[in-house]
Simulated assay, not measured.
Amino acid sequence: MVSKMNKRKRMARGAAVFVALAAMAVIVRTIIRKRRPCITYGPMHERDRIRYDYLNQKIWQSDVLCKNMLRFERAAFFRLCGILRDRNLLEISPHLSVEQKLAMFLHTIGHILWNRVVSANFGRSYATTSIYFRKALHAIGELRNDYIMPPSLETPAKIAGNH
Rank of each mutant, 00 (worst) to 15 (best):
R8Q: 15
F18G: 06
I27A: 10
V64M: 08
R51F: 04
I50G: 01
R47Y: 02
D48P: 09
I50H: 03
A23V: 11
V17C: 00
I27Y: 08
I27D: 03
K58Y: 14
L55D: 06
R33K: 12
C38A: 02
R29W: 08
A23R: 11
Q61H: 15
V17L: 01
N6W: 14
I39H: 04
W60A: 14
Q61A: 15
G42M: 07
R33E: 03
A25Y: 13
R13L: 03
K34D: 05
A16M: 03
T30H: 05
Q57A: 13
S62D: 08
E46Q: 00
R49V: 05
Y41V: 14
D53M: 11
L21I: 03
I27H: 06
Q61C: 13
R29A: 12
Y52R: 11
S62K: 04
M11W: 06
M11I: 12
D48W: 01
A15R: 10
D53A: 14
I59S: 02
K34E: 09
M24G: 13
A12F: 13
K58G: 13
G42W: 03
M11T: 09
D53V: 11
V17Y: 01
P37W: 00
I27W: 06
R8A: 14
P37G: 00
P37I: 01
V19M: 14
A20Y: 08
K7D: 13
P37L: 00
K9Y: 07
I59G: 05
T40V: 08
R51N: 07
K7C: 10
D63A: 02
N56G: 12
I39Y: 07
V28N: 02
H45N: 03
K58P: 14
V17P: 00
A12N: 15
N56Y: 14
I50E: 03
G42Q: 05
I32M: 04
V26C: 10
E46Y: 02
A25G: 12
E46N: 01
G42T: 03
A22N: 09
P37D: 00
M11D: 13
F18V: 08
I39T: 12
Q57S: 14
R10M: 11
A15L: 04
V64C: 10
K58T: 15
R51C: 11
E46T: 04
P37F: 00
V17M: 03
P43H: 06
R51P: 05
I50V: 09
V19E: 15
F18Q: 12
E46K: 01
N6Y: 11
T30M: 07
I50S: 07
A20D: 11
I31K: 10
N6P: 04
Y41G: 04
M11R: 15
Q57M: 11
Y52T: 08
I27E: 03
D63G: 03
G42V: 07
K9P: 01
R13C: 01
L55F: 04
Y41S: 10
A25N: 13
L21N: 14
L55P: 00
C38Q: 01
I27T: 07
Y52I: 02
L21G: 04
I59H: 01
I27L: 08
L21Y: 08
G14A: 13
I59L: 02
N56C: 12
M24Y: 14
Q57N: 15
Y41R: 09
R8H: 15
R51D: 07
V64R: 11
P43G: 05
A16N: 07
